[in-house]
Nucleic acid binder design. Structure first.
Lengths: 326, 326
DNA sequence: GCATACTGGGAAATCGCTTTCCGGAAGGGT
DNA sequence: ACCCTTCCGGAAAGCGATTTCCCAGTATGC
């Protein structure tokens, strides 16, 4: 492996000069030497040793991203945005997938701390369970070491946050559905303690005073939607699944039971997952700019300004065929 | 930040001993000291500095994964498998997305080289274009530095490879469709120089001697499928899209034109993307164990054995509603 | 009982880069 | 002509681990 020292020797300059030329420094280097160094580096095929650089500088160029599941298009889209944004800053993204295991989440934060990652981004709201305290401790420790933390979703005290307007988005959706004549609702609400799910559910319900929609809890994924759809009360005319993937599950369940959407039942989701765009019937949903959310989280974590700041992201109601006016 | 030296001092032992206890070494340390060191580390909240470790050891714990697009469920599934496998080996994955830009691919390999990544995994076949030579050079350089390279898809000379049986999978699909009575085929073939696409196309066509299916080239994504579907000849009874995502596009196109699948036209894809499982009609396709492919690539790259080896992965034809017998 | 392993502990030399000083040279103001 | 900056090059001290020696203390073989 070619080292900086080799380059310096080859160019007949000092290590310091070579470093300044090749790895960006505040100090200038005269044109002549700069040229010589660059040439030598090219000839020898020099490649910076990032580990050494990180050690010397005391800060690396990696951003950690912790998601639940990359196969879930919601997280994939966020990851995509994050990777792009990181790249624009000359950073590189390390992803960890927890598959909803809080212990793994903590392990990743710890590992990212060991990497001296510049920032860690936590996507996907954690349930409000006992391990949350341990996570918090670990995050605190990470931040004590100079790392930044950004959270997507819930507003975790004292960290930068990309706050998704789940409540108001769901409320707007509810309004729209009500305006179309629906009165009997069911909500496929996801896990009760999952904050994103709970917010969407509450926002939706709160916008329907006096209508007391039926609330059905269950897992936050496709199969959860499928299962929950089974216990919908007769008389319900419109179903809101707290995310698109669950809506897909519900759709399948309805189909299996011979219920047609939107003829027999209207259905709405949340997120507006691109991969699901061609679903038939097209899903009414609340569009979230997921890639942008990922990117914003990176920006936030990298903008080393003062206090923890919060960026708000709004969703946009998109009415499509899966909902029909009554 | 707590350093190993702090721990050693706190425990009253030498740096060497502390290192041996905390960061795994061939040498044994007496029970008494070991205990003291562990306790000291816990009390002080010591966290290994991976950068320093990497520098000293000359090898890091990151695996680079370069994909085209994380939003594409094909790559997301591969990434998921890779992340899991890496984790099992105590490694961590850095992902880069190229969005089909060969220059970025090279840049990522270069950057991973600078990170002294243990291995880099290239997913998504590159087109056979001029920049391929540059990629090759970069990979060569990377390997000269002791890194391993694994490629998913095409058999790039001299590297470990997870070879996907695109040809035979497509051929098996073609056989199955022929057995169902189809004779007039169209292939939505993707870009002519994209190796994965070309292999699937050729494998399919080769299994239909004398039938000369219509071949339509275009982009490898959903919109490519949509667009290509427009130029299908009248008389065609069965359409093969070289991946599921294109099939989805084609399906949308047919729907827009009032063609019903499978009543008017049969349609098949390739990959068996999980997120698309609930499509109506369910897509006939060739199932690929994508997560396993990602995992295998990691294993391959990490199994530091002798020569470059090739792992073959077979697809499995899955007949679903989108195809009807004639 | 003596030479010969073998064990486990520690001192110190790396690993490759950044950055603080230090110092000489050149430019500018009066 | 002198002093004060400013500019740029280099020597050397870290950054935080790992690992090679070296050594003392035991254990083992004959």
């Amino acid at each position: 492996m070619v080292t900086l020292e080799d380059v310096a020797r080859h160019a007949g300059v000092s290590l310091a000069t070579a470093s300044r030329v090749l790895n960006g420094s505040a100090r200038q280097v005269g044109a002549g030497l700069r040229e010589r160094v660059e040439q030598a580096a090219a000839e020898l095929g020099y490649r910076t040793n990032v580990a050494a650089q990180t050690l010397a500088r005391g800060a690396g160029n990696v951003i950690g991203l912790v998601v639940h599941d990359l196969v879930d298009p919601y997280f994939a889209a966020i990851a995509d945005g994050a990777v792009r944004a990181a790249e624009a800053h000359g950073m590189v993204v390390m992803v960890g997938t927890t598959h909803r295991d809080p212990v793994k989440e903590i392990a990743y934060v710890s590992s990212l701390g060991a990497q001296r990652a510049r920032a860690v981004i936590l996507a996907g709201s954690r349930v409000d369970d006992p391990s949350a305290a341990a996570l918090r401790t670990e995050l605190e420790r990470y931040r004590a070491g100079g790392g930044r933390v950004a959270v997507i979703g819930q507003d975790l005290l004292g960290t930068d946050t990309v706050a998704v307007a789940n409540r108001s988005g769901a409320a707007a959706l509810a309004e729209a559905l009500k305006a179309m004549g629906h009165r009997e609702f069911a909500i496929l609400a996801g896990p009760p303690r999952l904050i994103t799910a709970a917010d969407r559910c509450e926002g939706f319900a709160a916008a329907l005073p006096g209508l007391s929609p039926q609330i059905i809890h269950g897992p936050f994924d496709r199969d959860g939607g499928y299962a929950a759809a089974a216990s919908i009360n007769p008389g319900v005319t419109c179903v809101f699944a707290v995310n698109d993937v669950m809506a897909v599950g519900a759709l399948a369940a309805f189909r299996d039971r011979g219920l047609r959407v939107p003829d027999d039942l209207s259905l709405a989701g949340f997120d507006d997952i691109a991969t699901l765009r061609d679903l038939v019937p097209a899903l009414t949903t609340v569009r979230l700019p997921l890639a942008e959310i990922g990117a914003r989280a990176v920006e936030l974590a990298l903008s080393g300004d003062a206090g923890p700041s919060v960026v708000h992201v709004e969703g946009e109601v998109v009415i499509r065929e899966s909902v029909r006016a009554r």
